[in-house]
Design a protein around this nucleic acid. Sequence first.
DNA 1: GCGACAG
DNA 2: ATCTTGTCGC
Length: 222
Amino acid sequence: MDIAALRAEQLQRAAEVVRQDDFDVLPPRFIGGADVGFEQEGAVTRAALVILEYPSLKLVEHRVARIATTMPYIPGFLSFREYPALLAAWNTLERKPDLLFVDGHGISHPRRLGVASHFGLMVDVPTIGVAKKRLCGRFAELGAEPGSRQPLIDKGEQIGWVWRSKARCNPLFVATGHRVSLDSALQWVQNCMGGYRLPEPTRWADAVASNRTAFQRWQNAL
DNA sequence: GCGACAG
DNA sequence: ATCTTGTCGC
């Protein structure tokens, strides 16, 4: 792995990211959620993809793919570590989503190519990055009220929104992944909330990926 | 040189 | 990311 080469690739691909709304279907009929985790001390990469129907936000499909891990975690290069498993899961989907929420940053990245942007470009689907922590950029302190938001600024440009989705919870970092504007990205995330800190697509992907109790209960209820 | 650093 | 129960607080 050659970090300098990967950095050059990021700069080249970042120039291809579409930062404006460019949907094939409006409003989206199916919204996806993507999450990646690791097993066996990092040797195995596990990607989960879920599809929810909009606006009911009902889970209609879920897939999990496991592959051998190819790269270590290096801040700023997360997408190269996660996309192989995401692609594997993506190829098993019966229906492709009209819009996809990816766990991680979009253009709110040092070179404007977080995993949401990188993967969105690879499969040419509108994506939104929903991250739980800041990677780069600065923002003014948020109000305590849910709904409070501030632009995330880096090198003089807005690269995302910092948004408090719920009271007494740390804010979310929402940004354009690909083919979705910054304002629309935040709007769609707001449209997919179900009373928790994370939007439903992301939350379900998390649940499926970690096989948590809520998901098991849902599956057994069939 | 010193800190920061998605998952 | 992952290892992991109960517990404090709204």
